[in-house]
Design a protein around this nucleic acid. Sequence first.
DNA 1: AGGGTGACCTGTCGGC
DNA 2: TGCCGACAGGTCACCC
Length: 271
Amino acid sequence: MPELPEVEVTRLGLRDALRGSRIDGVHQGKPLRWPLGCPPQQLHGERIDDVERRGKYLLLPLQHGELIVHLGMSGSLRWLAAGTAPPPGAHDHFALLTDRGELRMRDPRRFGAVVWHAARAAPHALLAALGPEPLGAGFDGAVLQRALRGRSAAVKTLLLDQRIVAGVGNIYACEALHRAGIDPRRAGGEISAARCARLAEALRATLSEAVAAGGSTLRDFAAADGAHGCFQHAARVYDRAGLPCPACGAAVLRITQGQRSTYFCAHCQRR
DNA sequence: AGGGTGACCTGTCGGC
DNA sequence: TGCCGACAGGTCACCC
């Protein structure tokens, strides 16, 4: 599920509840992708100072170190105010019990993780190589073109590389390329400056519209309050194979790139 | 170094 | 109804 918009929607839904809360306990279910990296008791008494985001990672700065959360393919976080928490379900594999309530992570496929990192001063290895934030002030066509320079792989595949730009996943890569009118099979390094500028702007517009729509819920994404996103209804090509392109009416195509589905309109998206 | 593939894990859906 | 394959929002380790 979770690309940048879903993680950002989660962050916004957790911020007020978590900021300033104190961790009193930790629940761990089945193993996630990576181990926590510290004894759970070490977190007891820690105050959560804020709720931040970098790419698809959610960051919880503590008094000592930070927690780094990734939602993988199927993860979501719920905030359960004190006294309202039902017993953990089969796929609830991690929880922080705080003085105000419970932060519960559900992740059926267990591709997600919660990792403790000691020193905020030095970025964790998971974050060190991330590319620019597409919604950040410095991101534009020139930055994107520099990152794509010399690359022969398909631009769609490169957009999924978190070192090129942080936070873009399969849905929003497809949507932004359609919006920019660029063929997803085009080699990244061959895209002109003008088209890189259009692509950078399309990424910004697509991602910010998705945040405003509460993200996309394909199967199991929910915000911290349990609400589903509705951007999937606004998608122009993603998961719409055979349906008409909203811009020209031609049938949307589905191809496979790097073992992932790509949806695009061969009429609107030119090499 | 960059590009391509398999692996991780569980659930759901369509076809026979 | 049941079984089986394809597919799903991600990314890492490994091969050439």
